[in-house]
Amino acid sequence: METSFKVTRTSREIYTEWLESYTLEQLNKIPQGFNNNLIWNIGHIMVSQQILVYGGAGLPMDVSEELLAKYRRGSKPETDVTQEEVNEIKNLLFSTIEKTEDDYKNGVFTTYNARKSELGFELSSVEDAITFNNYHEGIHLGIMMQLKKFI
Rank of each mutant, 00 (worst) to 15 (best):
L19A: 00
I30S: 01
L19N: 03
Q49A: 12
Y54I: 02
H140Q: 03
E85F: 07
L141H: 13
T131P: 03
I42S: 04
V7K: 12
I39Y: 00
K116Q: 13
V86W: 07
K76I: 10
N37I: 05
E118G: 14
G74W: 10
S124I: 01
I89E: 02
N87L: 11
Q26A: 05
K148E: 14
L59H: 05
K29T: 10
N36S: 14
A57P: 06
L93R: 07
I97G: 02
R72C: 09
F5V: 02
A114Q: 11
S64D: 07
S21C: 08
A114F: 03
M61W: 10
F94E: 06
S117V: 05
T10R: 14
F94K: 13
I89D: 05
Q32M: 13
N41V: 03
S11R: 10
E88Q: 14
M61F: 06
V108C: 08
E78N: 09
V108P: 08
S125R: 09
F5W: 06
W40P: 04
N113K: 13
Y15N: 11
Q26E: 15
K76F: 13
I51K: 12
L119G: 02
S117H: 06
S21F: 03
E88M: 12
E2P: 04
F121G: 04
D128L: 01
Y104A: 11
S75I: 03
T110F: 04
K29H: 12
N133T: 09
N133M: 01
K6V: 12
Y135D: 01
